[in-house]
Computed example of a mutant assay.
Amino acid sequence: MRRSLVTAAALLALAGSLGAGPGGADRPPLPDRLADTGGGSQLITAEAPDTGSTTGTVTWWERRGGSWTEAGSAPARFGAGGLAEGATREQGTSTTPTGLYDLPYAFGIEDAPAGTTYPYREVTEDSWWCQDNDSRAYNRWVEPRPAHCRAAEAEHLVSYGTQYARALVIGFNYDRPVRGRGAGIFLHVNGRGATAGCVSVPADAMAEILAWVDPARAPHIAVGTSSGPTAITRY
């Protein structure tokens, strides 16, 4: 009888030690495992299992009292082409760029959710996002669309009534745009399936994120995979 009790205790101890490993309950929250969080006290993470994935999880975090805590989470969708390293991504591949990015401003066809403090730009019939590599307005909102930004190489934002009901601009290739790298990468409301390179979440999650995100807390978004060269913890 005593031998059985000792064996049972040993098995319980082993199970406890396994639970305390990398996947255990005492594992630090994801922001603490990132190489960088952008220096603010709010962070959104968008994590996919691997570069071939088109689905994953978006989680929003806040830092209070020196600790990161989860503020919310939702299922996410990524590009139809999966994910690709942001520094070498190519335009037209329908891949979501991995990396750590700021969030310049929000926009939408619908009004901003109640409580929104983030800069929020209203979409009108004249609102376009220029993706024309030959235009000096490359990877910029233009209103109205200038002649040097061809309509065939731009998104007429109001035409995406579901996806751009509400959105956040992701600062990928934004400050100093590299032609051919990609333009118009957003966190927006889900459409019918995988995206053309953006990150998307359900409409209620997008509304919650916009009401939560605070410009005074310098929010960023980290996009990556669970492991490998594009692991979210590298950024």
Rank of each mutant, 00 (worst) to 15 (best):
His148Gly: 11
Ala194Trp: 00
Cys149Pro: 09
Val158Ala: 15
Gly115Tyr: 01
Ile109Asp: 03
Asp132Trp: 10
Ala165Asp: 11
Asn190Gln: 11
Pro113Trp: 03
Leu168Gly: 07
Val189Asn: 05
Thr95Asn: 07
His148Val: 11
Gly193Thr: 12
Arg192Ser: 13
Ile170Glu: 06
Val213Tyr: 00
Ala147Thr: 14
Val199Asp: 01
Ser135Ile: 01
Gly197Tyr: 04
Asn133Arg: 07
His148Phe: 13
Pro215Phe: 06
Thr124Ser: 14
Pro113Met: 04
Ala207Lys: 01
Phe107Ile: 10
Met206Ala: 00
Ala211Gln: 03
Ala165Ile: 10
Gly180Asn: 01
Thr98Gln: 03
His156Thr: 12
Arg121Cys: 05
Thr96Val: 09
Tyr118Glu: 06
Val142Thr: 10
Arg179Glu: 04
Tyr164Asp: 07
Tyr138Glu: 02
Thr93Cys: 12
His156Asn: 11
Val158Trp: 15
Gly180Gln: 00
Leu210Met: 01
Val213Gly: 01
Arg136Val: 02
Tyr164Gln: 12
Arg181Gln: 06
Asn190Met: 11
Met206Trp: 00
Glu153Arg: 14
Pro144Thr: 04
Gly171Cys: 14
Ala207Asn: 00
Gly115Thr: 00
Ala152Arg: 14
Glu143Lys: 08
Arg136Glu: 06
Asp175Cys: 08
Thr162Glu: 15
Pro215Gln: 07
Ala196Asp: 15
Gly191Gln: 08
Arg181Lys: 06
Arg179Tyr: 05
Ala147Glu: 15
Ala112Trp: 04
Ala211Pro: 00
Glu143Asn: 08
Arg166Glu: 10
Ala196Cys: 07
Val158Gln: 14
Arg192Tyr: 13
Ala114Leu: 03
Ile185Arg: 02
Arg181Ala: 04
Asn173Gly: 13
Leu100Phe: 12
Ala194Glu: 05
Gly197Ile: 02
Phe186Leu: 02
Tyr105Gln: 12
Asp102Pro: 07
Asn133Ile: 09
Pro119Met: 10
Thr95Gln: 15
Ala196Trp: 12
Trp129Cys: 10
Arg150Ser: 14
Val213Asp: 02
Gly99Ala: 09
Glu143Asp: 09
Cys130Gln: 08
Arg121Phe: 09
Glu143Gly: 06
Arg217Gly: 09
Ile185Glu: 02
Ile221Trp: 03
Asp102Lys: 08
Met206Asn: 00
Asp175Val: 14
Thr93Ile: 10
Ser94Pro: 07
Ala165Phe: 05
Cys130Ile: 03
Arg181Tyr: 00
Leu210Asp: 02
Glu143Ala: 13
Glu143Cys: 02
Val142Ser: 05
Asp175Met: 11
Tyr120Arg: 09
Val142Gly: 07
Ala165Pro: 06
Ala183His: 01
Arg140Lys: 08
Val189Glu: 05
Trp129Ile: 04
Glu125Ser: 15
Gly115Glu: 00
Pro219Asn: 05
Asn173Asp: 15
Arg121Gln: 11
Ala222Leu: 10
Pro144Val: 04
Ile209Leu: 03
Ala152Cys: 11
Thr95Phe: 06
Ser135Tyr: 01
Ala106Met: 09
Cys198Ala: 13
Trp128Tyr: 15
Ile221Ser: 07
Arg150Pro: 04
Thr117Asn: 08
Val178His: 04
Asp111Trp: 03
Glu208Gly: 02
Pro144Asn: 08
Leu210Thr: 00
Ala216Asn: 11
Arg150His: 12
Pro177Tyr: 07
Pro119Gln: 09
Cys149Gln: 03
Val189Gly: 05
Val169Gly: 07
Pro119Cys: 05
Thr96Glu: 10
Pro177Lys: 07
Ala114Phe: 00
Arg136Met: 01
Val158Cys: 11
